[in-house]
Amino acid sequence: MKSRRDLEERARRALQLLLLQRHRKPGVKGWELKRSVGKNYLRVLEYLNEIIDSYGLHVRMVYEEGETTPDQARFLITVKDGIRMSEAISAGWRIDELAILAASVAYIASRQGSISSRELIRLLEVKFPSWFVEATLRRLVRYGYLERDGDTMRIGWRGKAEIDVSKLLELMIKMDVESEG
């Protein structure tokens, strides 16, 4: 890369690409960034990360099924430090839906990333009416938090990008079931 100014210019271009949603899915593929920003796009993203860090944002790379190289991966900008419960509620989420998402992701992750949808539904139906489970799972699949392949359920591309699965499992272990907070 020629100069700092050049790096800044490329970072600005990368930021526009990452933020502006042009397809159904947000973010861009590595090869799209390479085409627009240049072959050193990972270095540009590192620089961009340093800049947006102060605004509480973070560039994240997500691999979907069968992808192995950064060129194939999807790059997204996510919130860095999480959000508050009140913000999630005001974004249109119900507590029951969030609970279903938490339970589904944790259960799928504990089963190596894929389970039969019947097993997941059976677990969720212990706590929620079946119509609500069906409707919420359909919504989560549509948003990309979960992925349904026939009878198999996996964590979807959005779930991988937005949820820190290892932290979720850790909190599941540590949580105090008695406390209602």
């Binding site: 900008i77 999480g82 029951d96 932290k167 979720l168």
Partner: peptide, 18 residues
Amino acid sequence: NRILARILVSCWTPIASI
């Protein structure tokens, strides 16, 4: 459900897009 939702929110970093 409230605790499950709270756990999720604490490790949830939503995507920013326009």
